[in-house]
Nucleic acid binder design. Structure first.
Lengths: 204, 204
DNA sequence: CGTATGCTCAAACGATCGTTTGATTCCCTG
DNA sequence: CAGGGAATCAAACGATCGTTTGAGCATACG
């Protein structure tokens, strides 16, 4: 059972699932605490409020996602032989690894929901915890695509972001066939996304 | 004032705005009817329920959007000199025209929200009213991209859909500069999206 | 004129929401 | 073993939700 995990972590795990399924408003604390097997008051006791819980759900996943993305980027950034595909791989692979992780597989969908909702508080929180990562990647894209104007580059990055968010949240993700291993399927998916994004970013 | 319009239309217009701003659950009937300047009970009287109102908001815009898209597609579909860009233009231009329309400018954002929410009822409704349009466009893409496998084509169309939904819902839409007319700006935007989508669809 | 019909209105309904409370249980420490 | 802070619990709080009700109003028709 989950009863071995701490109350806080049981709440976070159940929250991630329910937020992905029903949205932040749609998932009530009563459904959530029932699914986690904890008392209703436990959320306010451990997190203070429902909004703080939402932030914690994001923080737990974004911290590791950002760390892995920046680590991968640092290996290729600024180097003369680095290609556009290398940078895109550094951006996409950690997200897909998270998506394939059993307990974190729903987080990308939560993230897609957060993008669709224009809640200012949440957007500011995401900007604070996410902004510097996007800025570093943007700087590297700018280095590799020197012919693009600043405006053109922003346009294309925005479109690529939309495509990747959409895909990684699992809307139309092509189902893995039974004769393909999961790691092979992931490599295929990464290759798909990287090539698509590279084409969209670098077309003449 | 809006008082000249009928109660039903005032409700639909106010609903479109509030659904775009706060989501379907987030916008209450009390906020909605107050913004429309009608009585609270008017929604249930004219539409039956809040869910039926949501469907009507979609139906009103999707009917014209689908009509325009199919009309534009029929002018180029199957013809030997048709290019990928022509088909993409037929898909994108009507949506952007809707986006630029004063009263319909928020609908694409409502649509993006609907995509992010995995509500089965709403998805079934969208599939029934939207499915045949996507099928016709997919068939034309398949004709113009004969080298792509079925799976590969679905992958790329899904990614393009994500990018366009993201862009047309106005997340990162580059703001029009004051020295550019709105129609010129729209043409620029269409050109951007068409070229990006064409690159993503047809890359080797 | 009387009345039927379509619409609007204020008010209330039961349900559910996030949050708070105060008592109770648990567990560690002195 | 006794004491005390942390954690959990059932219960209730006020607020807000979608929906329903029944009276009141308007306009059109005989």
């Amino acid at each position: 059972m989950n009863s071995s995990a701490s109350t806080k972590e049981r709440i976070l795990t159940a929250a991630e699932l329910l937020f992905a399924q029903r949205g932040f408003d749609g998932a009530s604390l009563r459904q959530l605490t029932a699914a986690a097997g904890v008392n209703l008051a436990a959320v306010n006791y451990h997190f203070g409020s429902k909004d703080k819980l939402v932030e914690e759900v994001f923080r737990r996943r974004l911290d590791t996602l950002n760390t892995h993305r920046l680590a991968a980027l640092s290996k290729v950034a600024g180097q003369p032989q680095t290609t556009l595909e290398d940078v895109l791989d550094a951006f996409i692979r950690p997200a897909l690894a998270l998506s394939s992780d059993g307990s974190g597989s729903l987080f990308m969908r939560v993230l897609a929901r957060a993008f669709a909702e224009h809640d200012d508080t949440l957007r500011q929180f995401l900007s604070e915890n996410y902004g510097h990562v996007m800025r570093q990647f943007t700087a590297e894209f700018a280095r590799l695509l020197p012919k693009l104007s600043r405006e053109e580059l922003y346009w294309r990055i925005d479109l690529v972001t939309g495509a990747l968010t959409h895909a990684m949240s699992g809307f139309g993700m092509i189902q893995r066939k039974s004769d393909v291993s999961e790691s092979a399927h992931r490599e295929q998916t990464i290759a798909h996304l990287v090539r698509f994004a590279a084409a969209g970013l670098s077309h003449p």
